[in-house]
Amino acid sequence: MTLKKETEDIETSEKEIDSGECESRTIVTPGEVVAEGNDFLPGEGTRREGKEILAQKFGLLEKNNKLVKIIPLSGAYVSRPGNVIIGRVVDITFNGWLIDILSTHEAFLSIMECYGYVNKRDLTELYDFNDLIVAKIKSVKARSIDLSMKERGFKKLEGGMLVRINSTRVPRVIGKAGSMVGMIKDETGCNIIVGQNGLVWINGSKVENELLAKKAIEMIVEKPFQEGLTEKVKEFLSKNKIK
């Protein structure tokens, strides 16, 4: 029970990037003029050239008041400070661990950033090779990414299964304020952690439940722009529920 509460803490601490509606959005391609005049501010994925604002990425255009930004539809994970991610231990140094987080670099988790007592003589006691961990990105520099596990809820993942999805679909899987993932959790009784880097960890009492949750997540990833997606996933889950 305490385990479940901890994971909920992580999700609510995540900032919501993407909401449900998509009617007013259009797809833009690089070099396209997305707004004209000095009334607009160029946001993420755009740049200003003279009076025009140009798209610098392929994705969905979103105009929020004066801010123009582009939400990517595909592509590799780009790490940002504050992201909660799932990673795998690939190397152990004298003062920490190197973690593969599917980004441009391997991330570093220092023993200073761990909670509680760490035996410095043998770091494998805490996290060994190939262990999966949930951690937060503390900082992103040109050469390195630093992780932190000091806050509550960050831990080693044991048991369960790991699903890899595209990182641009993560906001869909989480839903508005965690509504989608919360619903899947309730329906399947599984414990789910969604990493911003596209790794999803599912742990349930029965393998059947885990597989059902996995199928639901795959459904969201395949058709992210469907209307009433939450309802459809809910229907799918209640229909296939294992008693």
Binding site: T29, P30, G31, F58, G59, L73, G75
Partner: peptide, 11 residues
Amino acid sequence: LASAGIPMKEM
């Protein structure tokens, strides 16, 4: 490149 979400000044 565009579909991989890589920033491009133009096509």
